[in-house]
Write a protein that binds this DNA or RNA. Structure first.
Lengths: 246, 246
DNA sequence: TCGCCATTAATGTCTGACAGTCGGACACAA
DNA sequence: TTGTGTCCGACTGTCAGACATTAATGGCGA
């Protein structure tokens, strides 16, 4: 009995097409920005129908490996952070991730982001960070706006940290966590003022280039958030009930 | 100049089909495991052709929102961790993420995973963890096997931490980082023994439920890895040259 | 009741077609 | 030179219809 029964995966034609093109993109034969042939030509090249090619292309488009600036142009592209973030957030929402889960991760990533931002932020970014912070202070009346700006504030700090891996890891978590503020805010009025205070400290520390302080306040800020969540009794509640709107 | 030039998004039929089904999944009307009608029926429902439906379904399949156990069954499903991880890793590889980037994130996530694992690991998992560790100790001769097991070791710890958000955040990073061991190992012979030692400590700490110790060794382990990377002069090298094989 | 088999139905793929519109080119006017 | 009007060709998005293969299902026999 020497016959190896390797499970062979049945590969559909459209899948093979996608796979082959993807291979050439990933190994560098096709570079981002490069233009791809039309569907008819691709169909001829692979010896399949246009319908089949289309189904394959859909997958690549969906993966963000190719992209159509206009229906008439098909080019290789780098996956966009936003696309990835959205998908990941959505997946977490469907998995019924709890505030506890999100918080645990945020407690690891957010101080790191603040730390690195303090190290690497540019002068232009300092200005923009202060702008966002100022706008945030003005938005106390509107919860939705506060959430949007809060998310943006932290996201911007992560951008300033200039680490794509960190971005990818934290964005989906942050998106869901800060959104939870809507459920927390009504329960704890002090949350708002404490949050504003923390934001100020974080902003100052980052702009001053004080990594330790930035990290410390980043941590404190997230810890505060946890207290509010706990007070609201939401620790083990799914961060999002239905995943709609992501 | 008061004319508002809002960029209007043209929505193609296949996109609308995908969007509509996705909406129903995300808002909970369609639950994971539920079976969907066939393509013909869907085409009738939406008033489009089967080809159009197919292109839409491809997107949902790709997102992991629907899934075909066999070509004949189409059902709603939860996105699989592995699918998400692969996509994210691939994206990072294409972004030319450096070892420094990966390491910074890992330094935040891996100790956390060890910490939580120490808190939440089950008896069965303890056995499996020890198994993996033992197997890892035996694999010193084969670098590829070592990498595979090392990745699995850390991944398993994250599993034991029972936090999907953490999994999603760390897996893609870990996949690329530990793979880099192949480039590091030849340069630093002591790396192997130190690594084995750290693994032992981590395993023991987790099984003993000592969170602090688990975290400490988790951290030390990653810091060691950094030293090796640095020694090899790879700190700012892209973790993967071409993204092939992901 | 349980297991096997044939029928049915749905998928994967193909052929062919058509309208809309985008890209590019060219000429002309400001 | 720069922008506008016009035209042609090319390619996409969508449609209609068709066929072979194969998996699900129900009926049959044990």
């Amino acid at each position: 009995m020497s016959l190896q029964g390797r499970q062979l995966k049945v590969k559909y034609a459209y899948y093979q097409v996608a796979d082959e093109i993807q291979r050439q993109i990933l190994d560098g034969s096709l570079k981002p920005g490069e233009r791809l042939p039309g569907e008819v030509e691709l169909a001829e090249m692979f010896g399949v129908t246009r319908s089949t090619v289309r189904e394959g292309l859909r997958q690549l488009e969906n993966d963000g490996l190719v992209h159509r600036p206009s229906p008439r142009r098909l080019e290789v592209s780098l996956p966009q952070m936003e696309t990835l973030t959205t998908r990941n957030s959505r997946a977490m929402a469907m998995m019924r991730v709890s505030f506890r889960h999100l918080w645990q991760v945020a407690l690891a990533t957010e101080p790191l982001a603040a730390d690195l931002a303090a190290l690497l932020i540019t002068e232009e970014e300092k200005v923009e960070l202060r702008d966002i912070h100022a706008e945030l202070l003005d938005s106390v009346t509107d919860v939705d706006r506060t959430i949007e700006l809060d998310t943006r504030f932290h996201s911007f700090i992560a951008t300033a940290a200039k680490n794509p891996a960190l971005m990818l890891a934290r964005e989906p978590v942050a998106l869901l966590l800060y959104r939870g503020f809507a459920q927390v805010a009504p329960v704890s009025e002090i949350a708002l003022s404490r949050q504003a205070e923390a934001h100020t400290h974080i902003t100052d520390a980052i702009c001053a280039g004080d990594r330790d302080l930035a990290r410390t306040w980043g941590r404190r800020h997230i810890e505060d958030f946890w207290k509010a969540i706990n007070k609201a009794g939401l620790a083990d509640a799914p961060a999002i009930k239905s995943a709609e709107g992501i």
